[in-house]
Design a protein around this nucleic acid. Sequence first.
DNA 1: CGGTGTGAAAACCTTCACAGCG
DNA 2: CGCTGTGAAGGTTTTCACACCG
Lengths: 261, 261
Amino acid sequence: MATGRTHRPATRSRGIPEATVARLPLYLRALTALSERSVPTVSSEELAAAAGVNSAKLRKDFSYLGSYGTRGVGYDVEYLVYQISRELGLTQDWPIVMVGIGNLGAALANYGGFASRGFRVAALIDADPAMVGRPVAGIPVQHIDDLEKIIEENGVSIGVIATPAGAAQQVCDRLVAAGISSILNFAPTVLSVPEGVDVRKVDLSIELQILAFHEQRKAGEEAGVAEAVVPPAAVRGAGTAPATGPGRKGPDGDLPAVMPA
Amino acid sequence: MATGRTHRPATRSRGIPEATVARLPLYLRALTALSERSVPTVSSEELAAAAGVNSAKLRKDFSYLGSYGTRGVGYDVEYLVYQISRELGLTQDWPIVMVGIGNLGAALANYGGFASRGFRVAALIDADPAMVGRPVAGIPVQHIDDLEKIIEENGVSIGVIATPAGAAQQVCDRLVAAGISSILNFAPTVLSVPEGVDVRKVDLSIELQILAFHEQRKAGEEAGVAEAVVPPAAVRGAGTAPATGPGRKGPDGDLPAVMPA
DNA sequence: CGGTGTGAAAACCTTCACAGCG
DNA sequence: CGCTGTGAAGGTTTTCACACCG
């Protein structure tokens, strides 16, 4: 996952559902691959398989964009590539700045997928004077003191934060003050931003924790439904609290096999 | 968001909703910070603010875990940390293997948040003989030929893929064959896995594309609701297709102001 | 016939609002 | 009194199933 808008009650004017938007890049990637292999048309079934979704969902998604398919045939690959690109705003060039050129930042800067598809790294920025001037991925690192100037001069509206957690909110505030309205945050912090600024988050450790949850589930199940040793419907139920009295609290201690979940 | 289970119709036996699971790590992080500042209790309002969600959602989420709060007071920080950790399976140790020690892989290996919270990098694996033996983040890189042995010997059940896109599916297949059932995929590919294997995806370029979409929206709106130049309810409507005849197709060409979205 | 496009149903998630407990 | 815990309402997303078109 690693996603998450911050605050903002999902205003999303009228238009394409957020869930659909999140899948468009997937379709686009699959379509690009087909295009490179010169495949002229594709059915919802095939494309859905390539994108890892089911075909009904894909067709519904496309229906929000318009009627771009041909019944009995499928979708024209090139045409769809163009339409989705346009919808996502990838027919224009998006200069981005990256702040925090440590291990991760450098890796991101080197990452090819970044450059493709309309995104251009306009500047790499770091607070460490020792980094300044050194080229990373062929781009010289600039000092954070010049942040505002850099953003203005390059017309940047998307920023990537790859600083340590402690610096992220500060950097974020400066980016926003300088006019940036979309932020991709790799630091493990919740950023608070004013209305109108979009934040998406990528958080490695959160992803791992979610996997661990499911992994634990699996282990428990295959071990013979253990852990289901629970008095049918206690605690969770509403109203009539079982007269088990108080007990059941005491920070940390707590015998492992009590119940929740 | 960069998330995504692959296939599998979201079986998730009975229990905690997926959306809640995805937020537990957030709560845990906020709680850990409070714990470090020795804050004894916290209200749903305060904790929600720290985690970047609203308090009703947080209370609902916690209600799936059980009744861990005290009315009129709030939640005991230490106790909640323990309960959420246990729920997420973080009270046990999760050895992980990372495959693909390029720029990104090395950055991830160095990333601290990885090591904390019960995850331990058991091995770094790469296909390049030149990398083998070289220590990254203090751990020597091993060759992919030994993948199966490494996984078995260390009882690993979580794998991280940070290879180039072309190698990802192959590596995935080997991981799965070796017994791994949870995968965190950083390569820009849709992995196909058998039933029972969880895949989560982190994809930089997808996140950027989603941001670009919203950014474009904002730009369009502030420029005076242009683009809303649309015949009230054509095309999208059901049934009675407007007799505009065919036209409107022809790969690529298409005048920019037609309609979709 | 094969495959899109889409209403309608179902599942899921969020928010509201308040009873009730400490 | 203050705050949790939770039914119920409201919203969004997914899935179903089939009319309709090329």
